[in-house]
Amino acid sequence: MLAFYQRWAHKLYPLRWLFVLLAMLALSAFIGLLIAGGELSRRWQLSAVVLAVSAMLLWLWAVLFSQPLPQERADSGLWQKLKCKLLYMGYYLLAVFTSLLLLATVYLGLRTLKGIIAALFFS
């Protein structure tokens, strides 16, 4: 799992500035929708928040997992091996947490899209 995250982080790393820009644009759109008010703006507020959170998660993925994973050497002492295993476990827990957050944002994005489509075609 960590190898998958690291491989994709190396591919996403050059796009990290784009993720920050996209998050800033989504947050400014959300603030604009809050100020505008009305039924149409309430329909798009959750979309803007989901886009901002997704962009920041992708930026976090690209930055955190682009670093090399800790390697255990045969000649290292007990404390170095323990430190390496703890770091590896920390990266693994971070990957699981990132996966859960990405799944939650995908779910919210699909629910938002369903609501937008339902409002456009069935009202």
Score class of each variant (00 low, 15 high):
residue 2 L to I: 11
residue 4 F to V: 12
residue 5 Y to F: 15
residue 5 Y to N: 06
residue 6 Q to D: 08
residue 8 W to R: 06
residue 10 H to Y: 08
residue 10 H to A: 13
residue 11 K to E: 14
residue 11 K to N: 09
residue 11 K to L: 12
residue 12 L to I: 04
residue 16 R to I: 04
residue 16 R to N: 09
residue 16 R to Y: 08
residue 21 L to S: 09
residue 25 L to S: 06
residue 27 L to H: 01
residue 30 F to Q: 13
residue 32 G to P: 00
residue 33 L to N: 03
residue 33 L to H: 00
residue 35 I to W: 11
residue 39 E to L: 07
residue 40 L to T: 13
residue 43 R to G: 03
residue 44 W to K: 03
residue 45 Q to E: 15
residue 45 Q to W: 02
residue 47 S to K: 03
residue 47 S to E: 10
residue 47 S to H: 07
residue 48 A to I: 02
residue 49 V to A: 14
residue 50 V to H: 01
residue 55 A to V: 01
residue 56 M to R: 04
residue 56 M to A: 12
residue 57 L to E: 15
residue 61 W to K: 04
residue 61 W to Q: 04
residue 61 W to A: 01
residue 62 A to V: 02
residue 64 L to D: 06
residue 67 Q to G: 08
residue 67 Q to F: 11
residue 67 Q to T: 13
residue 69 L to E: 11
residue 69 L to W: 00
residue 70 P to K: 06
residue 71 Q to A: 12
residue 72 E to F: 00
residue 75 D to I: 04
residue 77 G to K: 05
residue 77 G to N: 13
residue 79 W to A: 13
residue 79 W to F: 12
residue 80 Q to K: 08
residue 80 Q to G: 03
residue 80 Q to N: 08
residue 81 K to I: 02
residue 81 K to C: 05
residue 82 L to Q: 14
residue 83 K to E: 12
residue 86 L to R: 15
residue 90 G to P: 00
residue 90 G to D: 09
residue 91 Y to T: 01
residue 93 L to G: 07
residue 94 L to H: 00
residue 95 A to R: 01
residue 95 A to E: 07
residue 97 F to R: 08
residue 97 F to Q: 12
residue 98 T to I: 01
residue 100 L to H: 05
residue 100 L to T: 04
residue 100 L to E: 09
residue 100 L to W: 06
residue 101 L to R: 02
residue 102 L to R: 01
residue 107 Y to G: 03
residue 112 T to A: 12
residue 114 K to Y: 13
residue 118 A to L: 11
residue 120 L to H: 09
